[in-house]
Design a protein around this nucleic acid. Structure first.
Length: 199
DNA sequence: AAGGGCTCCAACCGCCAGCGA
DNA sequence: GTCGCTGGCGGTTGGAGCCCT
């Protein structure tokens, strides 16, 4: 007998689009018993007509325990901004430093909120630098230099070696000591820029 | 009230790296 | 060495809901 959900060419056709509560329940139940590994097996054995990738994404971004949803606090936003400055669009790394947040959520938040905010700040800085020569040129210069460094090195921090700086293998889950380490290094430049933007 | 535009977010897609056969 | 499979990642899209006129 031909398997169900197979198209004319014999290729399996998976469900797509929004997940139903029934699908969520099946996936959660299966993972509760067998754990979140071997996504292809999970997809087939759980009785979901979904591909493994889709199951993984649904679990990681929505069903996983301890997920925080919405209401990104000012502290978290600040941290995202700073991590993005440091790491660029490495959403999974950034998410790994924000307990309960997913890379997808941070990416969405960045694209819908922060990227606009950044361009707004940039415009503001450009506009004010036109009227305030001198010290403002200094700050703009720093920002521009950083951007150039990011372009050339493929990362936002010039010669900064992210992999060397973050020894992820040695860390516990969501350890925040590294943040303090980074913040100490970064604070002077960040605060000087922030003060300038506020004033 | 309606409908057009905009925003936000869940989900998909394509690429790449790692790993085992 | 290489091939195929799988998982992980970032970029992008589609649609639901909101807002404005």
């Amino acid at each position: 007998m031909a398997p169900r959900n197979v198209d004319g060419s014999g290729k399996k056709v998976y469900n797509k689009g929004a997940w139903t509560s029934e699908e969520d329940r099946k996936l959660t139940e299966y993972i509760d018993v067998h754990g979140p590994k071997k996504w292809k097996t999970i997809a087939t054995k759980s009785g979901l007509n979904r591909c493994g990738k889709s199951c993984r994404l649904r679990w990681l971004n929505y069903l996983r325990p301890n997920i925080k949803r919405g209401n990104i606090s000012n502290d978290e936003e600040d941290l995202i901004l700073r991590l993005h400055k440091l790491l660029g669009n490495r959403w999974s790394l950034i998410a790994g430093r924000l307990p309960g947040r997913t890379d997808n959520e941070i990416k969405n938040y960045w694209n819908s909120h922060l990227s606009k905010k950044i361009s707004f700040e940039k415009e503001k800085t450009t506009a004010s630098s036109a009227t305030r020569e001198g010290t403002s040129q200094e700050v703009t210069g720093i920002v521009e230099a950083e951007r150039e460094g990011a372009k050339e090195s493929g990362g936002p921090e010039g010669n900064f070696d992210v992999n060397q700086f973050f020894d992820f293998s040695a860390e516990g889950t969501y350890g925040l000591e590294w943040v303090n380490k980074f913040l100490e290094i970064d604070d002077d430049m960040w605060l000087s820029k922030k003060r300038y933007c506020i004033s």
